[in-house]
Simulated scan of single mutants.
Amino acid sequence: MTSSGITAVALAVLERQGRWLIQLRDDRDTIVAPGRWGLFGGHMEPGETPEQSLRRELLEEIGFSSGPVTPWFRSAAGGRVRHVFRVDLHIEPAQLQLHEGQDMALASLEELGSGRVWSPRLGQLRPLAPSLQEALARQLRVQPTRPS
């Protein structure tokens, strides 16, 4: 959180062969978008740049050390600033270790566009977090969908 009370986060659209690696967030009411599919990343620590924060979060959450990261967009809403990057996932997802969240999945834009993605671990469909909806909308140049 910044001194002005704004929460800043850095998030990654991890891309592999036209698909996005996404994280199923824990079912805890104390976090943003519990039980929904979101982007990997998280809160920026004091003194960190968005890129430094993103690299730290990817290591913490999935043990991934990325190559170049490309800033994609910045958005602000509801007291939160999102710095979103595009990152090439140059390794197989099976080589990653999930340390935060319930599941991860490599989803096509078509799957994401449905508003729900299947969780192999939980055996159920789960909705998308607002941050993922926003990134998808920017990718597809349409308004975010609202899961029912």
Rank of each mutant, 00 (worst) to 15 (best):
V32I: 11
P144L: 04
F85Q: 00
S108L: 13
Q102I: 03
V84N: 03
V9M: 10
S53L: 09
R56E: 03
S3R: 05
A8Y: 01
R116K: 12
S75F: 05
P71W: 09
L122D: 09
F40V: 02
S119A: 05
I31S: 00
E51R: 06
A129W: 00
D26T: 13
S66E: 11
P71E: 04
G113M: 02
A135P: 08
G5T: 07
G47N: 07
L125S: 11
R80M: 11
V81D: 08
L122P: 03
G42H: 02
A8H: 10
L106K: 13
Q139P: 03
R146D: 10
R56T: 06
E111I: 05
I31N: 01
G115M: 00
H99P: 00
V69D: 03
Q133M: 11
S131E: 15
W37M: 02
R116H: 14
L59S: 13
T49Q: 02
F73T: 13
G63W: 07
I91C: 15
G47R: 08
P34C: 02
L112Q: 08
R56G: 04
V81Q: 14
L24P: 06
F85A: 02
Q97S: 15
A10E: 01
P93K: 03
L54Y: 01
V13Q: 15
L112P: 06
L125D: 09
G63P: 08
V81N: 03
G18M: 07
P71N: 05
M104K: 01
I6S: 08
H99F: 14
Q95A: 15
L125H: 14
E100K: 12
F64I: 05
A107D: 11
G63Y: 06
L89M: 10
T30A: 13
Q133A: 10
R56A: 02
R80Q: 14
E61P: 07
I62W: 03
P147N: 01
S4A: 14
F73C: 13
G78C: 04
P34D: 02
T49C: 04
E48P: 06
E110Y: 11
L109S: 13
R126I: 09
H99T: 06
E61D: 13
